[in-house]
């Protein structure tokens, strides 16, 4: 054994390094890691509160815009959420209660997203071939001139 002193020393050194590494690891593992599985459980709550919901649904819009809401509910757009065209609620009513007027695309492209005749849309869905629907170039045409977006008639 007397000729294996260096072996004993190197083995001791390795064991010390491993022990230090193991102890250090104990301090570095997050508190809630492993509570329910190999992940940090606290993150679940962080994810729940990552930001305030931006979309609030038509019921929220109705609070201030009852006329539009009533018209929408009676018409064919009753299943189209206000936020589809007007953008998310949170961009309109800020967290501190202040109101920003959202910019709404009033050109034909807004309506064309759903109603332009395009390959892929279900056959029963109301669609128009823009070039046949209007006379002259499509650019610059305003659907809203004839159709009421909140309760369009066909």
């Amino acid at each position: 054994m007397e000729h294996a002193r260096h072996v004993v020393r190197v083995v001791l050194l390795v064991m010390v390094v491993l022990a230090v590494a193991f102890l250090a690891r104990g301090f570095l593992v997050p508190r809630s890691y492993g509570m329910y599985g190999p992940y940090r459980y606290d993150n679940v709550r962080e994810q729940m509160n990552v930001r305030r919901p931006a979309h609030a649904g038509p019921a929220a819009c109705e609070q201030c815009h009852p006329d539009e809401a009533t018209a929408r509910k009676a018409g064919v757009h009753r299943n189209v959420s206000c936020e589809v065209c007007h953008g998310p609620f949170a961009a309109h009513v800020k967290e501190d209660g202040s109101v920003v007027t959202p910019t709404v695309d009033r050109s034909y492209t807004l309506c064309a997203r759903c109603h332009r005749k395009v390959d892929g849309r279900p056959a029963g869905f109301p669609q128009v071939v823009l070039e046949e629907h209007v006379s002259g170039p499509v650019e610059g045409k305003v659907c809203l001139g004839c159709h009421n977006p909140h309760s369009p008639k066909l």
Partner: peptide, 10 residues
């Protein structure tokens, strides 16, 4: 109403 809505979201 506006305040209410802001509260709702908050």
């Amino acid at each position: 109403r506006r305040e209410f809505l802001a509260n709702v979201l908050r």
